[in-house]
C-alpha cells in the first residue's frame, strides 16, 4: 500500500508517478507532486518509481483569488 493525499491506496510493481496520476484521474493541467516530501518535476513522471509504502502528495495548481 501507498498513501496518496493522506489516504491509503493500492500499490503495484512498476508503478510510476505517471501511472498513479492516470489511475487516480488527476485531470488538472498542472499539478505538483511530492513523493515522501521530495518534489518530482513533471519531466520525471514517467520514470520516477513509486515504491511500496511511499507517501505521495498531489496538489492541483490553483492561484485564483
Amino acid at each position: 500500500m501507498i498513501t496518496v493525499n493522506t489516504e491509503e491506496s493500492p500499490w503495484h510493481e512498476g508503478m510510476t508517478v505517471r501511472a498513479l496520476l492516470d489511475e487516480k484521474v488527476f485531470t488538472f493541467r498542472h499539478i505538483i507532486v511530492r513523493v515522501n516530501g521530495e518534489y518530482v518535476a513533471e519531466e520525471e513522471y514517467d520514470r520516477h518509481a513509486i515504491n511500496d509504502g511511499d507517501d505521495v502528495m498531489v496538489l492541483h495548481l490553483m492561484a485564483g483569488g
Binding site: 488538472f28 493541467r29 498542472h30 505538483i32 511530492r34 518534489y39 518535476a41 496538489l59 492541483h60 495548481l61 490553483m62 492561484a63 485564483g64
Partner: peptide, 19 residues
C-alpha cells in the same frame, strides 16, 4: 515554494475551472 514547486510561471487551474 513547496506548494507551487517549479510552476512559478504557470497560470493556475482557475482559468480552466472558473471560480
Amino acid at each position: 515554494n513547496l506548494i507551487y514547486g517549479d510552476c512559478q510561471e504557470y497560470s493556475g487551474e482557475e482559468h480552466e475551472t472558473g471560480t
